[in-house]
């Protein structure tokens, strides 16, 4: 039996091809703007962040203190049972030292790397981590299980945003 072709097409363009003027490009740039309503649960979360406190919701059916807080428990699909204030301290579950910006451009000489981490906040159920940044720490000194505490913006600079917490620092 005759062997069939498996691969066809996919003509590679090189940088020279692109700059030669023989391959035409059509360019456009989109400027998209959005304003998101923060919702029933997260609006309260942000309100409390503005007050310098972290609030979670509880599911009494699943025995969970949930962070970020939510209107309903995604496991049992019942409405959350109520609100609970939790601490602004936690433990580093995992972390990274990131040398690129959100758009993949590289950070510049002298610019500090981003230090994203998954932090399990004290008072929330075990494993309920949130993504936040670490600060006031040398990247090479970050450890798994490290205890950290929120560093808040001054009260008059808080806007009701997750960035009202500047970062978490080791304690």
């Amino acid at each position: 039996m005759q062997e069939k072709v498996h691969v066809s097409g996919g003509t590679a363009l090189s940088e020279q091809d692109v700059h030669s003027g023989e391959i035409f490009m059509t360019e456009d740039s989109l400027d998209c703007a959005f304003a998101w309503d923060t919702g029933v649960a997260i609006n309260r979360y942000l309100t409390e962040l503005k007050n310098g406190r972290i609030i979670a919701t509880e599911c009494r059916h699943c025995n969970r203190i949930m962070l970020p807080p939510r209107l309903f428990c995604e496991l049992c699909f019942k409405p959350s049972s109520g609100w609970v204030y939790i601490n602004d301290t936690g433990v580093v579950n995992t972390f990274s030292i990131c040398h690129v910006h959100w758009d993949a451009s590289r950070i510049k000489e002298g610019e500090k790397p981003y230090l994203p981490a998954v932090i399990e906040i004290d008072g929330a159920s075990a494993g309920m981590g949130i993504m936040q940044l670490l600060g006031e720490v040398e990247p090479e000194k970050i450890k798994f299980g490290m205890k950290v505490k929120a560093v808040w913006k001054p009260e008059n600079e808080r806007t009701g945003s997750i960035t009202d917490i500047k970062y978490f620092k080791p304690i």
């Binding site: 959005f34 990274s96 690129v100 993504m131 945003s161």
Partner: peptide, 24 residues
């Protein structure tokens, strides 16, 4: 959009966090 994006995450963050945790 509300609880994560204002930290300006790059997709690599999530992989790096996962890879680091897996290795550890």
């Amino acid at each position: 959009a509300i609880t994560e994006r204002s930290l300006h995450p790059n997709l690599l963050w999530i992989f790096a966090l996962e890879m680091n945790r897996y290795m550890q």
